[in-house]
């Protein structure tokens, strides 16, 4: 079974490399904020807080405005880990209320309707840390969302950022890629006149 040794050595080596990478951020690793953005997307933080972190009302209740949050990095991390009791924010650590490390509470301390919802897709501790850093450094305190921030989030192959564009940086900036990314040109609505306008008052 000598043939097993090289592969075993490879596994050990790879594990060691991963440890180093996890601890210090190895060459070729993406920046923490890029990882954080990726997790912000894949964990569907966007679903309630929107890409910008503005949050706001929705069918599911109002999500916090992360741009205006006063929470520190560790408090943001705790909120992601533990969710928010009596609110819609889920806890992304699967066993968050098992040992009292979330607000000093255990599951039995919280009536069922006061428990934060769980999630079908919990996050690993490192992912929670990365997305908390992303919120703390890239969203918190950033004022109104801008066209450039939107394009950084979505890329330029979509019209989603157009409403943030000011004159000059505008729609042409993303137009060529938008055409590449989808098979249709950036069409505009050519609406017929108002069918029920009083005679002569159509506009």
């Amino acid at each position: 079974m000598t043939t097993d040794f090289p592969s075993l050595r490879y596994v050990i080596g790879a594990a060691a490399w991963l440890l180093v990478a996890g601890a210090g951020g190895a060459i070729g690793q993406s920046a923490p904020s890029d990882d954080g953005m990726r997790i912000y997307k894949s964990a569907n933080c966007v679903g309630c807080h929107k890409w910008s972190g503005n949050g706001g009302g929705s069918y599911g209740g109002a999500a916090a405005n992360l741009r205006q949050t006063q929470l520190s990095l560790s408090e943001i991390e705790e909120t992601i880990r533990c969710g928010r009791p009596m609110a819609g924010m889920p806890h992304f650590q699967p066993d968050a209320y098992s040992d009292g490390k979330c607000y000093g509470l255990k599951e039995s301390d919280l009536p069922e309707d006061k428990r934060p919802p769980g999630t079908n897709h919990p996050l690993r501790p490192a992912d929670i840390k990365a997305v908390a850093e992303y919120v703390a450094t890239q969203i918190k305190g950033k004022g109104d969302p801008t066209f450039a921030q939107c394009q950084k989030f979505f890329g330029s192959g979509t019209r989603v950022c157009d409403t943030y564009a000011t004159q000059g940086e505008s729609k042409q900036a993303s137009a060529p890629n938008a055409v590449d990314a989808s098979s249709h040109p950036r069409m505009q609505v050519e609406a017929a006149p108002d069918a029920n306008a009083p005679n002569g008052a159509r506009k």
């Binding site: 050519e190 017929a192 108002d194 069918a195 029920n196 306008a197 009083p198 008052a201």
Partner: peptide, 14 residues
């Protein structure tokens, strides 16, 4: 081409 558009919320005067 679009031949008519009916708004479900009337404009002023409608």
């Amino acid at each position: 081409k679009e031949v008519w558009r009916t708004y479900t919320i009337p404009a002023k005067g409608e």
